[in-house]
Design a protein around this nucleic acid. Structure first.
Lengths: 113, 113
DNA sequence: CGGGATCCATACTGATACTG
DNA sequence: CAGTATCAGTATGGATCCCG
């Protein structure tokens, strides 16, 4: 029933899905699921992400109302990223999936040379 | 705690995640969550997918032990795709997330011009 | 019908430099 | 510190043609 007309090519669900399930999106949401983080922390925790994709993905998620960006005008400047209530709802549904993938990752990827 | 060392750059969890959460992977899993489907059906149901990505994604998921491929030698040839038990476990955790995204898609994507 | 092979466009990355 | 800008190399995806 979800596969009927609801997943047409450019529909909102598809777009939202691309944001949320993107390579770096899930990892950022996972990181923020535990605590508010600063730019530099995210850069370190989400290993392998480029500055470009970090900025781009954060801006997308912020625009989606999933991530909250809070600037503290100080020297040095400080910017904190956290989940919005909507983001929290999303992550609550994302976490069980992530845990399953983490638990079964070896079985999935391992067997194949 | 999942964000500690467990998500290092090339770790199995990251790789598995890229397969499962890929743009087309989720849509194929969603389609197969309801019933076994043939190549042509998947091509139609997962609107917008190219033949290349359909073949590639299916082969990846098959290699991961998530999707089962069954060939019937007939004329015309027939190939059915279905979820393995592992795939079913995965989809059970994926579905709640998908439903949430579908329900909130307009709120996520809509508000931004 | 179910793909494989090929070529081309785009997206992503990495490195570097620069700013408020 | 927290970004933005730019450029070049590479990976990824799409379109098309073709075959058993």
């Amino acid at each position: 029933m979800m596969t009927d007309g609801k997943l047409a090519a450019g529909c909102p669900t598809r777009v939202a899905l691309d944001h949320v399930m993107s390579r770096w999106g899930v990892l950022l949401l996972l990181a923020l699921s535990e605590q508010t983080m600063r730019w530099g922390e995210l850069r370190r925790v989400v290993e392998g992400i480029s500055e470009k994709m970090l900025a781009q993905t954060l801006r997308t998620l912020e625009g989606d109302g999933i991530v909250h960006r809070e600037v503290t005008a100080s020297i040095p400047p400080r910017v904190d990223y956290s989940l919005t209530p909507t983001g929290r709802e999303l992550v609550d549904r994302l976490l069980p999936l992530m845990e399953w993938v983490a638990d079964n990752a070896d079985a999935i990827v391992g067997p194949r040379p």
